[in-house]
Structure formats: structure tokens, C-alpha cells
């Protein structure tokens, strides 16, 4: 009689409960990785500083990928950046989320015909939230973060699970665009 309350829950359910509690903390304390991949990064300082103050939402910049939760892909990605972005993304600790900024990450944007810029980010790494615009307004940037929080709450921000499950597909796409992801040449001994 006493133990029925617990015996009803399987290990899986307990894990899920814990996960929900964890989600509460995760969405209220999103640490982002400062990697200015492109021009949209210029609207991040206003979002971080006095005018909009991201810290209200518990967000803050972090120095290294190990510490961060959100990877902000701020703008277009040249091939050279994409390599490093993938490397960085794989270094982050799970669960990890990606917010793609600007039209460039969605479909190449204004650089759709460039020889150095990729067109569609989510072929290479999974994206949880897109913020459209060239460049997106600070308000929409903030809105994007709030969206991400809602997604985490609804357990829909699971790009990192997708990346794990469809790893072969992602790896193949990366290889098509980049050749080997990690390069070793005279600059990278």
C-alpha cells in the first residue's frame, strides 16, 4: 500500500520527470556561445546590453563551447566557418540547441549564389529556431530566444537528438560540401 505510489512509476517515467525538472532549469539559464559567424552578430550587443538586456531571461555569453547551451549561428556561413562550427558544435555538452540567425542560414539569403557560402544550414547541423531577416531586428532576436524557451518547455527543441540519430546523413552532407571536416595543412599542424 505504501509503496504503490512509487512502484507505479517505471524507471523511464522517473527519468522523464527528472528531465522535465532539468528542462525548467535549462530554459531559464541559457548560456550562449559567442561565435560571430556573420553579420547578424552585430545585433547581439544591443540585445545583450542595456536596451534589451538578455540577462533578464537568464541568458549570458560564455567563453567556450563546453560551457555553453546555445550555439548562435549569426549569419551566413562560409565553408571555412562551417568546418569550425561543426567542430565547435560537437564539443558542446548535451543537451545543446542551435539558433540560426538571418536569411542566410535559411536559404543562403543574399549570398545564395556565392562560391564560398553554404545555402542551407540544417543540412549540416540541426537547427532548433530560425530568426528570419537580413538582418533581424533586436526584437526578433529576443523573440527567437523566447521561442526557443517555449520549444524546450514543449520538448520540441531536440535537434541534438536528431543529430545523434541521423548522424550518418549529416556527416554525408558535411562531407559533400566540405570534403573532410577537419583539415590538416600547413596552418593546422
Amino acid at each position: 500500500m505504501k509503496s504503490t505510489k512509487f512502484s507505479e512509476l517505471t524507471q523511464e517515467q522517473i527519468d522523464r520527470k527528472w528531465w522535465e525538472i532539468g528542462d525548467f532549469f535549462r530554459r531559464n539559464s541559457l548560456w550562449m556561445l559567442m561565435y560571430c559567424t556573420g553579420c547578424c552578430a552585430i545585433e547581439l550587443p544591443p540585445a545583450m546590453t542595456s536596451a534589451y538586456d538578455m540577462e533578464r531571461l537568464g541568458m549570458g555569453p560564455m567563453a567556450t563551447p563546453r560551457q555553453a547551451d546555445v550555439l548562435l549561428v549569426t549569419g551566413y556561413l562560409s565553408l571555412k566557418t562551417l568546418r569550425r562550427l561543426i567542430y565547435t558544435y560537437e564539443q558542446m555538452s548535451e543537451p545543446k540547441y542551435i539558433v540560426g540567425f538571418g536569411s542566410c542560414t535559411i536559404n543562403g539569403g543574399i549570398y545564395h549564389d556565392s562560391h564560398a557560402v553554404i545555402n542551407q544550414l540544417d543540412r549540416y547541423i540541426p537547427v532548433d529556431v530560425y530568426v528570419a531577416g537580413c538582418m533581424p531586428n533586436t526584437e526578433s532576436v529576443m523573440n527567437g530566444f523566447v521561442d526557443l524557451m517555449t520549444l524546450i518547455k514543449n520538448k520540441q527543441a531536440n535537434g541534438w537528438i536528431k543529430y545523434k540519430e541521423n548522424n550518418d546523413w549529416y556527416k554525408q552532407n558535411q562531407k559533400e560540401a566540405l570534403g573532410e571536416v577537419k583539415i590538416k595543412d600547413e596552418f593546422h599542424e
Binding site: I21, F25, S29, W31, D69, S93, E94
Partner: peptide, 9 residues
Amino acid sequence: LDIFKLLSK
């Protein structure tokens, strides 16, 4: 929040 978030990762 930060600390417990970190512990949950």
C-alpha cells in the same frame, strides 16, 4: 538556476 542547470547536463 545556473548551477542546477549545469548539474543536469
